[in-house]
Design a protein around this nucleic acid. Sequence first.
DNA 1: TGTACATCAGTGAACGCGCGTTCACTGATGTAC
DNA 2: TGTACATCAGTGAACGCGCGTTCACTGATGTAC
Lengths: 225, 225
Amino acid sequence: MESRRERLRAETAAEIKRIALKHIAAAGPASVSLRAIARDMGMTAGAIYSYYDTRDDLITALINDVYTGLVQTLEAARDSKQADDGRGRLLAWALAYRKWAIANPEEFRLLYGDPAPGYRIPEGGAAAEAERRACAGITGLVAAAWPREVSGTYRWSDFEPDFVALVRAQFPDLPPAAIALTLRVWGRMHGLVALEVYGHLRSQIHDGAKIFEAEMLDMADELGL
Amino acid sequence: MESRRERLRAETAAEIKRIALKHIAAAGPASVSLRAIARDMGMTAGAIYSYYDTRDDLITALINDVYTGLVQTLEAARDSKQADDGRGRLLAWALAYRKWAIANPEEFRLLYGDPAPGYRIPEGGAAAEAERRACAGITGLVAAAWPREVSGTYRWSDFEPDFVALVRAQFPDLPPAAIALTLRVWGRMHGLVALEVYGHLRSQIHDGAKIFEAEMLDMADELGL
DNA sequence: TGTACATCAGTGAACGCGCGTTCACTGATGTAC
DNA sequence: TGTACATCAGTGAACGCGCGTTCACTGATGTAC
């Protein structure tokens, strides 16, 4: 029931994002400028305002798209392994995370660095939704390794209520300590990748794949997977 | 043997950095602007060019100072523990890393995020020197846990030659696998801190201290410390 | 101690840039009769 | 099928902004005799 006009409109909105992403990939998140995008599209800068109210709105849309894409990639990698292969699923997720980051460093910076000068991430946006989904994915991977022993004792009140509600709905049997472990696993996956993408391993090592894989293998061992 | 003029000059150069750091702490690394600094100092923007040839030169100087300060903090924390307390020293270093990052989030972003729009880190600068020093510090902590078993087999050629030379001079008995472990330890320390500083744990947890400490305790255990 | 000169930190004005955003408008596309 | 009108995507010019950088200059501070 969508008119020709609506279709064209949606296509233009999508092309704006496509060009913006091209700029990000080429020169980093800071290079997203409405004028530059318009120039590339053969349009006037003002025209973009029919599609996005504000530059920040566009950035938000980009973050949503990129984050959703990343999560889909991770889920697909995980699901390429048998459901009962907890170890394989965890490793597939982790390696896909690094692979995506190395292949899309600027997009990684968009999500996990400073998205753009002066930009503030909106509180309840769709990026937060994608982040929740990623987090739930890791929780599922950790759940496969449960029960087990970890450092520290936790209560549900250690976590944000909204997040607790979400987790408990999806994983009714997991204790708070498992959530703590989920976040730790996430951090452990993230650390080497962030260092590598931001160039901090460059003067030590040419390729971070090997130590990242070793780290993830040992992590899987320690999780008992 | 320094003249009055030289002293004043050095003081002004230092004040420029001090004000720049204040701006970074207040509004992030992207907010460093020569004009804003000059304004705060009651000077003209052009005057800064007697002290720093370029905006990027100033940023480089800031990164050097901040990184050096961080490394000194870490070394001091480590050295507050007995030399034979390998576990205590590792934990002191790690906790000091997070504490510094949480207390100085914008400085952390300056070092580990995008320093400033359009800024490229110079190759052989003093920031690289500070990074080497940090890396050597962790190597020392890992050395205390050696020998032990880890995933993967390594050759010296897996690492950058300059870095290898440095490590072998300082720790002649360590094998390449220990260096790999050093980088992994660094990554593991960095991951949760980076996520927390960039706000990615905000919707899950109010305070990352507890899970970070648990992660570091388990890491020390796994290192056999 | 006093004078003549050199140094050099800081001024102020200018250059040229790209940016986000607004707004009155044009002209093509769609709709209703 | 043809006409009258409504919609609305995109124009182009403007606003005001802050930025890095350059440059001829002034005037105070230091130096040499």
